[in-house]
């Protein structure tokens, strides 16, 4: 019993050691101005600014803007990817016709689309939503397709033996069997969406967390940049964890109902 506790204590202690050392170093370097404190901002000032921006609601305003962008782009892109993935898995002819085209489009690295999309859609909201949708589209499409395509043939044969109609086949066999893969797609999609919205806001925006970071840099106020980076990381993590919790509870619910 004691040894387990000691193990836990050492895990926590060792885990905190590096971040603490980092913070102390930053504090010392920043306050003594060994390096200019505009670049290495002492952590207590970052913390104070974080509290300040939270209480004035400034941070929340930027965050809400980015989250709305990410959710609308994700809904469009991942929704389209899901539908097309299902269709391609169910209709082989469609799959054969679309695969080469989709594969070639998927070869373009995400940020390679930026200049092109900006010419077509301008630099406002429309461009950002399209860009985020594009980021969400391919991971969702690939994972949905693979999930449904990879359902063992035995399952389908059993379903046929029970004379399931198409709707029932979808609900009772294909969708549940593909669920883990679909969730992988959702998680990847959301991750790419979050990255792309920050990227888009770095390039052209007047609001949003990404804009906040660039703005801080232009004012040479690095504390704003640090607060932005911390916010972006935290929100990304919370979204990811939320999906994981949702996934495990959905799986449990599903197992109970089978």
């Amino acid at each position: 019993m004691l040894s387990i506790d000691r193990n836990k204590v050492s895990t926590v202690f060792l885990g905190l050691l590096v971040p603490l050392l980092l913070l102390i170093t930053m504090e010392v370097v920043g306050t003594t101005e060994i390096l200019p404190s505009q670049i290495i901002v002492p952590p207590h000032r970052i913390y104070a600014l974080l509290l300040d921006m939270l209480s004035t609601g400034e941070l929340f305003g930027h965050l809400r803007c980015s989250v709305v962008r990410v959710l609308s782009g994700f809904a469009i892109g991942a929704g389209a990817g899901f539908l097309l993935g299902v269709l391609m898995a169910l209709v082989p002819r469609l799959q054969r016709a679309l695969t080469p085209l989709l594969i070639s489009f998927n070869q373009v690295p995400l940020f390679g689309w930026v200049p092109f999309l900006m010419i077509l859609f301008g630099i406002d909201e429309q461009f950002k939503i399209v860009f985020v949708s594009l980021a969400a589209f391919f991971p969702m499409l690939l994972n949905t397709f693979e999930g449904i395509h990879g359902v063992p043939i035995v399952y389908l044969e059993v379903a046929r033996a029970f004379e399931f109609n198409n709707g029932k086949l979808m609900r009772k066999v294909l969708f549940p069997a593909a669920l883990p893969s679909i969730f992988t797609g959702i998680k990847l999609s959301l991750g790419f969406s979050w990255m792309s919205v920050i990227g888009a806001e770095l390039i052209a925006a007047s609001e949003g967390v990404g804009f906040m970071i660039v703005w801080g840099r232009q004012l040479f106020q690095m504390d704003i940049v640090y607060v932005g980076i911390i916010t972006v990381g935290t929100v990304g993590y919370v979204m990811f964890r939320g999906l994981e919790v949702l996934e495990s509870s959905l799986m449990k619910w599903h197992r109970k109902n089978v």
Partner: peptide, 24 residues
Amino acid sequence: KMISPVFNAVRQVPIPAFAPLLVL
């Protein structure tokens, strides 16, 4: 035990967000 927590925390930040920091 020492590296994983830091590594995982930094990994949560989408990489584009680092660009303005790196410029300075």
